[in-house]
């Protein structure tokens, strides 16, 4: 073994010093975050007004897209909880920007059993309307086939919600995201009715419609949407379709993808792999 040179030793010492400092900072940071309930799950402040709209972000240079690999989803619902916290979605079991559906075929039963986290049985299992889990309701049954399907706004190319909005408060951005101007929405809920996917809800306290934005405040800073960030199995894929090597471009290229309800002509931009005929 050769004797290490002085510069190498110095560099290693400097690195260890930095590591120690970083560890101290991380510990202090974690302690501080732990003191704020719910904040520890976040990687960015929920609504940093000063940082949004993001400076130097050029929406003509991106075309965002979302992928769902249903074969990977384990129904842990971390995405649903992360979305609720990140976007201040009302803490109840009736309003969601994203949700997960469970499809179960039982042996000897032709009918598919579908539920989501809002189902009263699942709410009872989770114990509150703030945290979510799927109840183990089929433990005594013989399951023939079962899978989960994450759902969210499809950010359609021809969105029915945008078409019907009487004020133009909801609109499609250049980078392919459907947003709502909460300062201009009159709260007529025509968009909620027009969406064939049930992706919109009405925020009664704010008097406006709301839905998934693909975490626009995050993606314009180069971050991932909260649901994508927390998914432990990579069932949610997000990226720029203009970048041919981005996760979403590779997902679309390497899989036979499909969209929900293509017959509506809405042209969704959430692409699915591994869903069954009952899913719509």
């Amino acid at each position: 073994m050769t004797k290490e040179s002085k510069p190498t030793l110095a560099a290693r010492r400097a690195f260890l010093t930095k590591l120690g400092g970083a560890a101290t900072c991380a510990a202090a940071g974690a302690a501080a975050l732990a003191a704020i309930p719910g904040a520890s799950a976040k990687t960015e402040p929920a609504a940093d007004g000063a940082a949004f709209p993001t400076k130097d972000y050029d929406w003509t240079k991106h075309q965002w897209g979302f992928g769902v690999d249903a074969t990977k989803c384990i129904g842990c619902l971390r995405c649903v909880e992360a979305c609720k916290r990140e976007n201040d979605v009302p803490a109840n079991a009736h309003q969601f920007r994203t949700w997960v559906e469970r499809y179960v075929h039982l042996e000897g039963d032709d009918e598919v059993h579908i539920d989501s986290q809002q189902d009263p049985v699942n709410i009872e299992a989770s114990g509150s309307e703030k945290t979510f889990r799927f109840a183990n309701r089929y433990k005594d049954a013989k399951v023939y086939k079962a899978f989960f399907v994450p759902k969210l706004c499809n950010h359609c190319t021809h969105p029915a919600c945008v078409q019907v909005c009487p004020t133009g408060a909801t609109y499609r951005t250049e980078d392919g995201v459907v947003l709502i101007d909460h300062g201009y929405c009159i709260g007529c809920r025509y968009c909620v009715q027009a969406c064939p996917y049930g992706a919109r809800y009405f925020n009664e306290e704010q008097g406006v419609s709301d839905k998934c934005t693909w975490c626009y405040h995050r993606i314009t800073k180069g971050l991932q949407p909260a649901c994508v960030e927390v998914c432990p199995v990579g069932a949610r894929i997000f990226g720029d379709q203009r970048d041919k090597e981005s996760p979403i471009s590779l997902f679309i290229r390497n899989n036979r993808v499909q969209v929900l309800r293509p017959e509506t002509g809405n042209a969704p931009n959430v692409f699915y792999v591994g869903i069954d005929k009952e899913v719509n």
């Binding site: 929405c185 709260g187 007529c188 809920r189 008097g207 419609s209």
Partner: peptide
């Protein structure tokens, strides 16, 4: 019924023509 009745005229002042 509107969530923001005070903004009702938004649809007349700035109508979204496809709606």
């Amino acid at each position: 019924h509107l969530g923001h009745p005070e903004r009702a005229f938004n649809s007349t002042i700035t109508p979204h023509l496809t709606s």
